[in-house]
C-alpha cells in the first residue's frame, strides 16, 4: 500500500516490517463488564482473551512499536475496570516497546497511566494511522469492523477481514467480543467507491484475498 509492504496477519493485526510496527484496531477491552453494568452478564473473559491473542501475535513478530488504532477500551471508564492480572499482562506487552494508543469514539479520553503515549493520529512516512476512516490516500483506519461472507463449496463462510484498495485500508476489529459490518455496507462504498477493493479474509491460519464484489 502506497509503496509500503504490510503483512496482514491472520489474527487481524497488521505488521510493517521495516518499521517493526504492529497495528491492532478496536480491541474493545472490558466490553463484557460494560454490558454487565447494563444487566447483560456476558462472560468476563473478553479482556483476557483479547490480550492473550495480542500477546501471541506480538510474540510472532516481536515488534519494536505497537499502535492500538482506537476503541481499545469499550467505554470511557473501561480502563479503570481492568483486573490486576490483565493490567499486568498489558504492562508486560509494553516492556521495551513504543506503545501508541490512538483514541477512538469509544475511548476519546484515555488516561496517561496506561503506559505508552496517547495520540489522535500518527503519520509515519506516507502512511497515516487514525481511528475513523476518512477515505484519504495512505490512510489506515479501523472503526468499521469489516467482515465478509464468502461463498464456498456447499455453503458460505463469514469472517472478519481487512478491506483495502491499495491506497487505503480498514482493519478488522481485534477484540474478542467485537462483531462486524459487512463490506457490502454503504459505509465501505463511501470510502472505497466501487466494490472493486479487496477483502483479506481471516482464516484459521492464513489470510485469503477476495474481490469485495464477490463477497456479500
Amino acid at each position: 500500500m502506497a509503496d509500503v509492504g504490510f503483512v496482514a496477519d491472520f489474527s487481524g493485526a497488521l505488521f510493517w516490517e521495516e518499521q517493526s510496527l504492529l497495528v491492532v484496531s478496536d480491541l474493545h477491552l472490558e466490553k463484557g463488564s460494560s454490558f454487565a453494568a447494563h444487566g447483560v452478564l456476558l462472560p468476563p473473559y473478553d479482556t483476557v482473551a483479547t490480550l492473550s491473542r495480542l500477546a501471541a501475535v506480538i510474540a510472532r513478530h516481536d515488534p519494536r512499536q505497537v499502535i492500538a488504532l482506537g476503541d481499545s477500551f469499550h467505554d470511557r471508564d473501561a480502563h479503570a475496570r481492568l483486573s490486576e492480572p490483565d493490567r499486568e499482562a498489558l504492562a508486560a506487552l509494553q516492556v521495551r516497546r513504543n506503545w501508541i494508543w490512538i483514541s477512538g469514539n469509544h475511548d476519546p479520553a484515555l488516561p496517561t497511566n496506561l503506559g505508552g503515549v496517547v495520540a489522535t493520529e500518527v503519520a509515519i512516512g506516507p502512511i497515516v494511522f487514525r481511528h475513523e476512516p476518512t477515505g484519504a490516500a495512505g490512510e489506515i483506519a479501523g472503526h468499521l469492523h469489516p467482515k465478509a461472507r464468502v461463498p464456498t463449496r456447499g455453503r458460505s463462510i463469514e469472517r472478519r477481514c481487512f478491506a483495502s484498495d491499495g491506497e487505503r485500508a480498514v482493519m478488522p476489529a481485534f477484540g474478542a467480543y467485537t462483531g462486524g459490518l459487512s463490506i457490502r455496507d454503504a459505509a465501505f462504498a463511501r470510502i472505497f467507491g466501487s466494490p472493486g477493493f479487496m477483502a483479506h479474509v481471516l482464516g484459521d491460519n492464513r489470510v485469503h484475498a477476495f474481490v469485495a464484489s464477490r463477497c456479500y
Partner: peptide, 11 residues
C-alpha cells in the same frame, strides 16, 4: 463442512 482454511482457499 468446517469453516476451514481449505474451503476459503478453494473458493
Amino acid at each position: 463442512g468446517e469453516a476451514s482454511d481449505e474451503l476459503l482457499a478453494e473458493a
